[in-house]
Design a protein around this nucleic acid. Structure first.
Lengths: 156, 156
DNA sequence: CCGTATCCTCCACGATACTG
DNA sequence: CAGTATCGTGGAGGATACGG
């Protein structure tokens, strides 16, 4: 056996890694978030070889992160657009980016609230329901909810 | 050239991928967050072959995410502990996990807000500063705070 | 117990050429 | 333009054996 199947592991991180496939996949998703949709756009942006791109695209479609959508008949043309699942990958990319930037630059990564679909920053503030007081990042921390952490055998 | 060097890319996501190395690396980091430190602990937890583990551990130490720390002389013994950089990877693991869990179960990934000092739940709501509208987890994604990424003992 | 050494396999990726 | 076909390679990872 050459490769342990991450898909069969209980851990949701491992399963995610299985679906995300290879590193190229994440960079393709990143470009998709930037609005790229067509084969040659990805090809030029990434400098990936066309056959590799074909494989990665197919894998992402297969994993349900991208959808292959016809936009022209005659000569059939397709574009690759993010599904909801694919869009849910944005936080992963953002944290990956933050790590990279934190270790390139003096600035540390900051807390940010972004639009779930577009990734655009959202100017929002946390408000305590009881007191009506605004909460800062000094006041609170974010932790996964009970629902998520208490899922039987699901360990990170 | 077999592999494009992600390290040379401008994109911080790509550079992060370069440093994280292979998928095993992320699972090793995950285990490190769970408190594992020794070779055989990782080996048993992951089911990874010992030589692969040696390579991954060395790569993570080389990338500055783990530190190889002697804890015993005589028969020299080492353990592998998270550096600050390694600890900064926690948000990546969390978002990876959230994605995996969101696609296993009906519930969407979410975060709970807790008091930074006591850990007590805080009943708070996100409000858009512009419109005054309350934001739900459907509207926004969270990029964890610096505070969270620095808490070494943060439960995953 | 904590690894290292050898050998091998498999597959992601690149190079190149080709097609409707 | 939007891919597919073919071929070759390097490196991750497993199996196994060995050592301090």
């Amino acid at each position: 056996m050459r490769r342990t199947s991450f898909a069969e592991m209980q851990c949701p991180v491992a399963r995610t890694l299985e679906h995300a496939g290879e590193w190229w996949s994440l960079l393709i998703l990143r470009d998709a978030f930037h609005g790229l949709r067509r084969f040659d756009e990805f090809e030029r942006s990434l400098g990936i070889s066309p056959n590799s791109l074909t494989r990665r695209l197919a894998a992402l479609v297969d994993a349900g992160l991208l959808r292959r959508s016809s936009y022209q008949d005659g000569p059939a043309r397709f574009e690759y657009v993010l599904t909801d699942s694919g869009r849910d990958f944005l936080p992963v990319l953002l944290t990956l980016r933050n790590w990279g930037m934190a270790h390139d630059r003096p600035e540390r990564p900051n807390f940010a609230v972004v639009d779930a679909r577009t990734g655009e920053p959202v100017d929002a503030v946390l408000v305590d329901r009881g007191t009506g007081r605004e909460l800062t990042s000094e006041d609170v921390a974010f932790v996964p909810t009970q629902d998520l952490s208490r899922t039987g055998d699901a360990r990170i």
